[in-house]
């Protein structure tokens, strides 16, 4: 595998890093996960071996023997999709949940390197650069990652279907104002006509949230990834009976 694979989508690579550098020795309580514990810098990288003495119990029987104790070992066989749309059930969608609360107890910076507003990458992989998040960006990313791992929100519904960060956000860290376009949602959930058909109420056909009197609106008006989704219609039509996945 060429070294180019190291620059695949950031979530996949990030997960590989998590696996590579799981570090039991520096775990902290889940409550502290949402606080940026390091204002500007990353702790010394840990290796997978710091926690895992062997991988036999973790990997499928036919998984080749792992040689090496860094993420590079995984990247060679688990290539990442440069088109920023990756296959389902990626390593990222399995490994982040395994190491983050509630199952695990690690924080981003155990496996990722970060210099505030300069750099975010994968510890132990040279030249890996996936953006330049500020402390505030890190806080939001951490919060989004945690709800993706476990919450009643839409992000977790995606996680359960094996959809990782990169499937929506691409290989770079999402900038502060990221909001998905309808085309991105419809790439999997479309075409719109299909959605319209599926959400046509049996009683009143014109009360269809995907074809309303507001015309074409953003999916994200109702469907929020990292917070509770809510039916915008109900802001005025208080007597409608409508529910939404990932809602309160």
């Amino acid at each position: 595998m060429s070294s180019g694979s190291r620059f695949g989508d950031w979530a996949t690579a990030g997960v590989l890093a998590l696996m590579a550098f799981a570090a039991a020795g520096v775990m902290n309580s889940a409550g502290e996960q949402s606080e940026p514990r390091h204002a500007t810098a990353t702790p010394a990288p840990m290796t997978c071996g710091s926690c895992h003495t062997d991988y036999d119990g973790l990997l499928a029987e036919d998984h080749p023997k792992i040689s090496g104790d860094t993420v590079g070992a995984c990247l060679d066989c688990h290539p990442t999709d440069r088109a920023s749309r990756s296959a389902r059930n990626l390593l990222s969608a399995r490994l982040h949940p395994a190491h983050l609360p509630p199952k695990g107890d690690l924080d981003c910076e155990h496996c990722h390197t970060w210099r505030a507003a300069e750099h975010f990458g994968l510890a132990g992989v040279t030249d890996d650069n996936r953006g330049a998040p500020t402390a505030e960006d890190m806080q939001w990313m951490r919060a989004g990652m945690l709800t993706w791992v476990g919450s009643g929100f839409l992000d977790h519904l995606h996680a359960r279907a094996g959809i990782g960060c990169a499937d929506c956000h691409g290989r770079r860290l999402p900038p502060a104002e990221t909001t998905l376009t309808n085309e991105q949602c419809l790439a999997c959930h479309g075409p719109l006509e299909k959605l319209v058909e599926r959400s046509t109420p049996s009683d009143f056909a014109d009360r269809n949230p995907h074809q309303s009197h507001l015309g074409e609106i953003a999916c994200t008006v109702c469907h929020k990834a990292h917070m509770a989704s809510s039916v915008y219609c109900l802001g005025c039509h208080r007597n409608f009976e409508m529910t939404i996945p990932g809602g309160q």
Binding site: H213, L214, G215, I217, A218, T220, V221, Y232, C236
Partner: peptide, 10 residues
């Protein structure tokens, strides 16, 4: 608002 049109569109 996340949609355009205010009172006008409704």
């Amino acid at each position: 608002m996340p949609t355009y049109g205010g009172n006008s569109i409704i």
